[in-house]
Design a protein around this nucleic acid. Structure first.
Lengths: 180, 180
DNA sequence: CCTATCATGTAATCCGTTACATGATTAT
DNA sequence: ATAATCATGTAACGGATTACATGATAGG
């Protein structure tokens, strides 16, 4: 029960364990795939190692099947719940960043032919459009939950950002830099 | 001169070396701070190790001062230039993600008191507003370059996303989930 | 001179990713 | 039955981050 540094992944696991009570890594994987995974994804192997770290810190408990697959079932502890609440309450220090690979490419596209820039812009535009549609469908499916459920509410930002991205890349596609 | 996997950081270094010809790690650090660093930041130590990797792959050359600080000066090679062009030209496979810590907190805020959510939203709103102002100032300073320089053009997306974020967090602040 | 700060760099650590592996279950 | 796919998990590697360290330089 030593103390370990908590990463966003840690809180993600704590957050899900808090909302469902207890889960195996595989169940976590499924939860992530249908939830945060849409805007914060990572390989499933993390969901096998991260709970171990959390167990070391006493934030979750582990219970292992004695038969068959010997699945591990993790549950959040009171300490874990406190850590989660504290994290949500504590003001955000670090700024979020765009970290869009397409944007990085555009940034360094000074030497590229215009046709390549246009192609990049179209690809990005379409990808963001797809994602926008997906978010909108999820929001529609969630209905009025978007007003009361914080998790669902995040869709609103996703949609807004995707729309802005579609508009941006559309403009770049139709009016690329170096256009003269 | 073995082959190494190229990461976004690799191309970032190649991109800058391509635009300035040659630079020391410290010069790269300054370039990044005034450029991509605004939307793709990382510790400066990367700028000391990454060029080494690129040199192994023959994408850059290294020249070391024989006196005083023994600074290292890196220059991009033709091979490096080709790699950079290819990267820009190749279509983007992976989707970009939001990866906003504030958004992650909101996602898991179901158990938090409304006051905490409001505080989170206000903090986020203000941070994004600040960043929005900064981007707009940079765009204004760049003037019409925004139409012709791809690197400057990226500011447009930054501004659009920041504005959308400000609006989103303002709404959450004034009308938080669980508000009933 | 002296010391505070900037410039410049290295070392060690670890999270996250990639790759692999094996037990269940379904379909044909 | 047997191939295919899903479920479940582990091992190993490396890039990114954190922390530390030392040389220049300017200000007082």
């Amino acid at each position: 029960m030593s103390t370990v540094p908590l990463t966003p992944t840690s809180y993600l696991v704590l957050g899900y364990l808090d909302s469902v009570g207890a889960a195996t890594p595989y169940e976590l994987k499924q939860l992530v795939a249908g939830g945060v995974g849409h805007f914060w994804s990572f390989p499933h192997s993390q969901l096998y190692s991260e709970p171990n770290r959390l167990a070391q810190a006493g934030l979750v408990t582990e219970q292992r099947e004695q038969t068959g697959r010997r699945r591990r079932l993790f549950a959040i502890t009171d300490t874990g719940r406190v850590a989660l609440r504290d994290w949500v309450a504590e003001p955000n220090v670090d700024q979020q960043e765009i970290r869009d690979l397409g944007l990085l490419k555009l940034f360094f596209a000074a030497g590229a032919p215009t046709a390549h820039i246009e192609a990049l812009a179209r690809t990005q535009r379409d990808a963001h459009q797809q994602r926008c549609d997906a978010y909108e469908a999820m929001a529609a499916a969630a209905g009025t939950l978007i007003e009361t459920d914080p998790a669902v509410r995040t869709l609103e930002l996703g949609i807004a950002i995707e729309r802005a991205s579609v508009e941006f890349w559309s403009r770049v596609a139709s009016d690329p830099p170096r256009g003269a």
